[in-house]
Amino acid sequence: MPIIHSLLIAFSATLTTFLIALPVAYYLLRRRTHFGWLLESLLLLPLVLPPTVVGLFLLQLFGKFGLGGRFLALFHNYSLIFTLSGATLATIIVVLPIMYQALKAALQSVDPNLIEAATVMGATPLETLRLVVVPNAYQGLIISLLLTFCRGLGEFGASLMVAGYIEGKTDTIATSIYFSIQGGDTQTALFLSGVNILIGVLALLLIHLLNQQIERRKQPL
């Protein structure tokens, strides 16, 4: 169960942060705005905070007496606390800066003249993204997804604060390893660690292959 929970959380968090960070990174790449640094700082903030601080913030916000918690309670007394959705939300906040930074680097790798050439021909920003940026940065985009997924898979502090550790309900690979060791079950901890390492190594192998492709693409035309 913890493996499925972790995969589910990591997958949802990766998809959500991709959908949030891609438009922001693309917008900030194209436009120099006065508030761009503020938006970027907000996205990067979780990177400079301990995950437990993110968790505490979410607990305050979505706890019984928090603004978000009281709002969600209006819908059949729903609560994010001690749920897999809560763990997913915590993971989203924690991995968002990683996704944003990786996407930004991927988009910046595209020759700005290609974007301008499309613009001169009448391409809209969305057409430029679809027809020029994505085809020329897809390796970087996949790397962003893989890095975020792996980080999401190992998320511990923030999701533990928000979702706790309830066996069969909110247990993840990272929390299960911790509580298995606490309970003296080294076998389970080792098995789960092995699964996590295997996924991580496979992801790194893929990233390496993609980076090789990027290097080949950098050869001047």
């Binding site: 020759d111 003249n113 290609l114 301008e116 050439a117 499309a118 085809p135 020329n136 693409r217 035309l221």
Partner: peptide, 10 residues
């Protein structure tokens, strides 16, 4: 516009 680096879509 013909760019100095040609800016052909690779």
């Amino acid at each position: 516009f013909m760019f100095q680096n040609l800016a052909l879509f690779p």
